[in-house]
Nucleic acid binder design. Structure first.
Lengths: 248, 248
DNA sequence: CGCTACCTTGAACATGTTCAAAATTTGTGG
DNA sequence: CCACAAATTTTGAACATGTTCAAGGTAGCG
């Protein structure tokens, strides 16, 4: 319970790491000031639940740092992850007061929150916010549909390769490295979380990761540290046509 | 090839059957007039392709009557349907010029089209359109995520029951009948299309429909005409918690 | 060092797929 | 209206992929 009180930290929007990708990306400085007035930060430790599905949610938020997941659960306990929230991603839905999914911090997480009422009012008066939110929502819809193809039609091996390729790409885009050449990253998810994302069991995830390693598609150092010697090879294993455009 | 030239038909927005659900739902009459000036109708016969994934698409559109599907295809031919477009649903993405999915008419189809350029300009000047489009996109995202749970975690029987429940509900909502009591409708999809939607093979779809019939969950007259004697029973079979809110 | 989480591996099993054939429905032309 | 061809659907049997249940291994952290 070492609760570092990050919730007190407050930063200028101008210095914010997600300033140019989040829902505020298009805002002018006066609009940003207005947002600044209604925003507050919240921090969560790895493993903590941000909200439970069905709970009242009186804020919307952007992920600033860390990773969160959206999951759905059936009565008998079957779980399906329906979203992986990375820095700049948006949580919550204007015009709805109950959370539709469980939101969980998988790493330590900082979110930039806006009380819903003022945010909704601002949406009406600030087209730059509504425009950006529409754009982000359309991107998420594309990502969800790409994921439907994965869940409905890909083999276990292809599913794992697809997930690794997505994480590798995202990491490459954050680090601004060349997309060719070898890539290195740490898995932000446990085997079980990967299984929940891919519609598999954790045993199958483990077996397929071992198989990809055995076949030289990936290298592992420990359980989490992954090296991709050849991204094209990984993409082939994922079954995507070479130039598929996941996420942003 | 009996091509009834519906493409010439032109109607007043005020009389349009989707006036209050489509992207134009929130528009005032002056805004509607502006839309009316840039709109045109197109008709497609059952089975026709509206656009191919990757093709240039210089319009966006609303489905007026009929049903269309969005599908993704892998190089080796595996197909996954990622959307079922019903009257009032929106096709195309402002700010993108290539289609991301194959769009196919599964029944005779009439679409209300807007050339992309003028539509995008109107989005900037007409908040009512952008607002409505955001709302619709958020609904579609919820539907896509509900479908991810189905694809990732439901059994074949649950998948079929879920699909039937969705179609039954939609039909009930169009006909304004009480959601209890027995429901009757025609399947708008072939077994193969159902399979593409559910991430199954057509044989499995056929077998599970036979099983649901054998168990008295549904009744069939011919291949397409379905009677649901007890919607609650069907919902149980679908594995949804009783009050789940699919689609709109 | 030893506990606890997490991960890997094995073997039996189950669900859904594949391939094949037969049945049914639909559309077409006589 | 009927007969035939084409398309769609159903059913069967062998098979494959991923799951389940069980045991053992590994890493991180007190």
């Amino acid at each position: 319970m070492a609760h570092h009180d990050l919730s007190v930290v407050h930063q200028q929007c101008g210095d914010c790491p997600i300033r140019h990708r989040a829902v505020c990306a298009r805002c002018e400085s006066d609009e940003l000031q207005h947002l600044e007035a209604i925003k507050f930060y919240r921090s969560y430790q790895a493993g903590q639940t941000v909200v439970w599905s069905g709970d009242r949610m009186d804020f919307v938020a952007s992920v600033v740092t860390g990773i969160a997941t959206l999951t759905q659960t059936m009565e008998d306990g079957r779980r399906q992850m329906v979203g992986l929230l990375l820095p700049s991603d948006f949580v919550g839905r204007p015009g709805r007061d109950k959370a539709a999914y469980d939101v969980t911090a998988t790493t330590d997480l900082v979110m930039c929150c806006f009380r819903k009422k003022p945010f909704e009012e601002m949406m009406g008066t600030t087209p730059h916010i509504a425009q950006r939110l529409l754009e982000m929502t359309l991107d998420e819809l594309d990502a969800a549909r790409e994921w439907m193809l994965l869940l409905g039609r890909k083999t276990a091996r292809e599913k794992i390769a697809s997930l690794l390729a997505i994480i590798a790409r995202r990491d490459a885009s954050l680090k601004l490295k060349t997309p060719k050449g070898s890539l290195v990253f740490d898995l932000p998810l446990t085997r079980e979380e990967m299984a929940d994302y891919l519609g598999l069991t954790l045993e199958t995830v483990s077996r397929q990761i071992s198989a990809l390693k055995r076949d030289g598609v990936i290298e592992l150092q420990g359980k989490r540290h992954v090296i991709i010697p050849n991204l094209d090879r990984l993409m082939e294993e994922a079954g995507d046509d070479s130039d598929g455009g996941y996420l942003a």
